[in-house]
């Protein structure tokens, strides 16, 4: 018996130790605290939950979070494709610095991004003062939230598209060119379909990150209830008023939205992979 399990597991040692530690640590840091949201002691009843979930201010905050995150992820998908394309297909001076800087939004603390973007787009800021005479306001409007989320989300798209573009086989492109297809048409009907799965993944990652994002948004959003108040901020302000049950209710719905989004993209990806075959 003993040899049978050993051969099943291979000859390497440490299975029980590493898996046991992994599960223990995962439970302590992630699973048990996360379950506190669902089995909470804050006196959150169904009535209270429903009351919070249907509160107009709460619904408005979901709408703001959802729409700005979607808009930012959409723009990032287009811009990210452009950046990835240029980085993979062309050589130009300064390319390696360009490539490294794509990750700045990953490495820069979100609070720093938040104060910096607010300074840029405020009435007296570098860009804000240029837009002011045109009547365009960015800081303290949904547009400001979108720009902050675009900053946060851009590396997700570039870094998921880049490796796929790198691995793309030239032969299909070649065949299309031989058959007289123009470069633009080759791009549209040969290259773009192959990039659809990573573009979708990048979009979903940027979207999911945007829905939960807090640090880069609170400074530039102005936090006006019903207009520029995002869902994570609402959780925060309920906590500050010691309304733990209310904060938990908002959090549960936000969590549900994120998980459904994750599930939807996973299913869509599986379907894409199947139809590509």
């Amino acid at each position: 018996m003993k040899t049978a399990t050993a051969s099943n597991r291979g000859v390497l040692p440490g299975f029980g130790l590493t898996l046991g530690y992994t599960i223990l640590y995962l439970s302590l840091v992630v699973l048990i605290p996360l379950s506190a949201l669902l089995f909470n002691s804050t006196g959150l009843t169904w009535e209270k939950f429903w009351g919070v979930a249907t509160d107009p201010r709460v619904i408005a905050s979901y709408r703001v979070s959802f729409l700005t995150a979607a808009a930012a992820a959409l723009v990032d998908t287009v811009l990210g494709l452009l950046l990835a394309w240029v980085l993979v297909r062309y050589t130009f001076p300064g390319k390696s610095i360009f490539d490294a800087l794509v990750d700045l939004p990953f490495a820069l603390p979100t609070a720093v991004a938040g104060v910096s973007l607010t300074a840029i787009y405020a009435n007296n800021g570098w860009i804000g003062s240029l837009l002011e005479p045109l009547g365009i306001k960015v800081a303290f409007t949904p547009l400001g939230i979108i720009i902050a989320l675009m900053f946060i989300g851009i590396p997700f798209v570039v870094r998921t598209v880049q490796p796929v573009l790198q691995e793309l086989e030239a032969d299909v492109e070649e065949a299309a060119a031989t058959l007289g297809s123009s470069r633009l048409r080759t791009f549209g009907s040969v290259i773009l379909p192959q990039l659809a799965p990573p573009l979708l993944t990048g979009f979903a990652l940027a979207f999911a990150r945007g829905i939960g994002e807090y640090g880069s948004v609170v400074f530039i959003s102005g936090n006006m209830p019903m207009k520029t108040e995002i869902a994570p901020l609402l959780i925060m302000s309920k906590l500050e008023r010691f309304d733990y049950a209310g904060a938990t209710a908002v959090a549960i719905i936000l969590l549900l939205i994120s998980f459904l989004l994750l599930l939807a993209t996973n299913l869509l990806q599986r379907w894409m992979r199947k139809s590509a075959r």
């Binding site: 807090y214 994570p232 994120s258």
Partner: peptide
Amino acid sequence: FSVSPVIGGLM
């Protein structure tokens, strides 16, 4: 990665 940081603190 898919949980909002604010929720991470709340729990």
